[in-house]
Amino acid sequence: MKLIITDLENFKVPVEGDYKIIQPQGNIRNCIGCFGCWTRTPGRCVIHDGYENTGIDMSKCTELIFVSRCYYGSVSPFVKTVQDRAISYIHPDFVMRRGEMHHKRRYSNVIQLSAYYYGETVTDAEKETARKILQANADNYDGRVKNIYFYKSAEELEGIRI
């Protein structure tokens, strides 16, 4: 299953195969750093606003795909907030991987990560940052980077297939 996290309310990008999409529907509340998703309700965020199960959705996916406006080399505030609220995908304990500290796995699935960024004025420095962040995400989810793309507008994405 592909899990798509996007800031597009009107998502018109053709998708191949099985997928689930998380997109803006009502207000999303931000992570408050309480760690309740690790110690009170392990695996699930404690804020009940419809965005509390992304960690569980991630455990069922083979691909995680961000479709987002590029904000300074980051995904958009909405997509980032969904990610922040989904740290329960991983376990709170630390492990060492390639000489760096990361979190232990909670699940066994290995996620392939892709990002489809859009935005008219994405600079080279922002593209470089976006690449670094996607790789860092892959390291922390213990997954792999599949691809990263940059488009000028969301409309351009309607002509591709993900």
Binding site: N30, G33, S74, P77, K80, N140
Partner: peptide
């Protein structure tokens, strides 16, 4: 700010915009 998922926390990113 704290490092959240390799980046800036979502709420702060929104403030930066």
């Amino acid at each position: 700010f704290p490092l959240y998922v390799d980046g800036i926390p979502g709420h702060l990113l929104s403030c930066l915009a």
